[in-house]
Nucleic acid binder design. Structure first.
Lengths: 252, 252
DNA sequence: CGGGTTCTTGACTAGTTTCAAGCAAAGTGG
DNA sequence: CCACTTTGCTTGAAACTAGTCAAGAACCCG
C-alpha cells in the first residue's frame, strides 16, 4: 500500500475563481466569507490514485476540501478486512474528525488523482469565532455526512444483497450527478468490484454475482469503467427506494 | 406504535444545577456559556418508554439533550424492516439533523422513560453567532456521533456475528459506564433481544443463538434485565478489539 | 509480449433466515 | 386470585444466502 504522498503544488487555484462555486447547487459566499476562506486555504495538495493521505490513528494537521477527483473513507480490521464508509467528491470536506478529535478514526484514500484545498486545523478556531455562518456550514457538512452513513447502515443491516447493490449504484450515480460528472446518463466509474464489495460488506465473488443479476435486468450498464444509468426507475424499484432531489448545500 | 407524547413538565431542572455537570468527563462551562445555555433551554420534556418523539420525514422545531434515560435512533424501510443506528444516553444531543437539514432522516424512540432538555431550533443561529465555543462543541458532538456510526458500519459490514455481538455489548457497556450507570460491573439493561437484533442487522433467532454462544463463554451474564460484565478482556478478545479510554467531552 | 490485476464462473461449505412450536414471566380483567 | 393474553426468550429443522476455493478469461501496462 502506498503511503500518503501529497506534494505541494506550484499553481494554486484562488478561491475567487474556485471552479466549484459555479455549481448551481452550492451556496454563494458573502464577500466577507470569501475573504476569510482565501486566508483559510493555505495550500493545495495533489494526491495520486491509491494513496492514503489521512490515516487512522494519526493526527491530522489539516482539513481538506476535495477540488477534483474521488476519494473514499475506510477502516481496516487487524486481519485486513476493510470496510469502506463513504465516498468523497468535489466540494466534500475531509479530515474534520481529526481536527476536532485527537486522532483520526478512519483513513482516506484517493480513488482517482485528487486535488485538495488545504486548511490548517489551527485556524479552525478562528473560523468559528469570526465567521459563524461558516461554522454553521461545517456543522451542516458533518451532519450530512452522518446522514449518508445512516443510510448506508440501513443497507448493510437490513437490505438484501441486490437491494444493497442497487441502492449503492443509485447513490453513487446521484452524487456524481450532483458533481456534474454525468454526461447523458454515462459516467467514468473509478471503482473496482473490490471497492464495491468492501462498501457493500460482501465478498468479491458474491458482489460480482449480484451485479451480474443487476445487469441482466438492463437497468444499468457497466463496461470498460463506464457506468450508464439506463432505467433509473427500474433500479429504484429493485433498491426499494429512491433519493429525494438534492437540496442546495454549503461548501468551504 | 405510540406516537411521541411528551408532556410539558411542572418542574424544570435549572442548568445551574444540572446533574450532568458533576460528571468528571464532561467539560465545564464558562460563566458566559452557562448564562447562554440557561436561556437556550426553554423547556423540559418527559417521554414514555416506547414513544417516538422525533420522526423521519418530519421537521423538528427543537433540539434535545438527554438528561436521563436511554433512547435510540432508527430508520425503517417500507415493509417494516428496522435498523437501529445508535443509542443515546445522558448528555447526548438529539435532533441536530432536523435543525440543520429540512427534515429528519431518522426517528428517535425512548427506550426507557426519558427526560430531555428542550432547545428551540430558532435560537441555534444565536448560539453560533454569540458563543463560538458552544458552536464548536456542537460540531464536536456531531463528529463524535459520526465516529460511532462508522464503527457500527464496520461491524455490520465486516465483523462476524459473534464479533459483532461482543463488540456491541462492549460498546453499550462502555457508554453506560461513562454515564455512571454501571455499579460493580452490573447495569440495568433496557434492551430486548429484538433491539439488539435490529442493531446488529441480524434476525431475532440468530441473535438469540449468537448471544447464547457468548454467554457460555462466561465473559458476560444477562439475566432478568441485568447485564453483568464478568471478563472484559475475554469479551474484547472475541470482539477483536476494545475501546480506548473515553476522552473528556463537551455537552450542552 | 509477458506479468499483473480484475473479472467471471462453478462447486462446495459455512452462515443466516425463516418457520414453527413451546415455555416463562408479566400484565389484565373478571 | 385465577384464567387469559401478551411479550419475550429458546430451540430445532429446513430452506436459502453468502463465503471460500479454485481456476480460467479478459484486460491493462510497461
Amino acid at each position: 500500500m502506498i503511503v500518503g504522498n501529497g506534494r505541494p503544488n506550484g499553481h494554486f487555484t484562488s478561491c475567487d475563481q474556485c471552479p466549484l462555486r459555479k455549481r448551481p447547487n452550492l451556496r454563494e459566499f458573502s464577500a466577507e466569507e470569501l475573504a476569510f476562506v482565501k486566508t483559510f486555504k493555505t495550500d493545495e495538495l495533489r494526491v495520486d490514485a491509491g494513496a492514503s493521505f489521512l490515516r487512522e490513528g494519526t493526527r491530522s494537521e489539516h482539513l481538506y476540501t476535495v477540488l477534483s477527483g474521488w476519494a473514499f473513507r475506510y477502516k481496516m480490521l487487524d486481519d485486513g478486512r476493510r470496510q469502506i464508509l463513504n465516498y468523497a467528491l468535489p466540494a466534500d470536506m475531509l479530515g474534520l474528525q481529526g481536527a476536532l478529535m485527537n486522532e483520526m478514526e478512519h483513513s482516506v484514500e484517493a480513488l482517482t488523482p485528487l486535488v485538495l484545498c488545504v486548511f490548517p486545523r489551527a485556524k479552525l478556531w478562528d473560523l468559528y469565532s469570526r465567521l459563524p455562518s461558516l461554522a454553521f456550514d461545517i456543522t451542516w457538512l458533518a451532519a450530512r455526512e452522518e446522514q449518508l452513513i445512516d443510510e448506508h447502515l440501513v443497507s448493510l443491516g437490513r437490505r438484501t444483497a441486490i437491494e444493497r447493490a442497487a441502492y449503492l449504484l443509485l447513490h453513487l450515480f446521484a452524487r456524481a450527478e450532483e458533481s456534474g460528472l454525468v454526461k447523458n446518463g454515462c459516467i467514468q466509474f473509478p471503482f473496482t468490484q473490490q471497492h464495491l464489495a468492501d462498501t457493500l460488506g460482501m465478498s468479491l465473488v458474491h458482489t460480482n454475482k449480484t451485479l451480474k443479476r443487476l445487469f441482466v435486468s438492463k437497468a444499468v450498464r457497466w463496461k470498460d469503467r463506464v457506468f450508464e444509468m439506463i432505467d433509473r426507475t427500474a433500479l429504484s424499484g429493485i433498491a426499494g427506494s429512491d433519493f429525494a432531489k438534492a437540496h442546495p448545500r454549503p461548501f468551504i
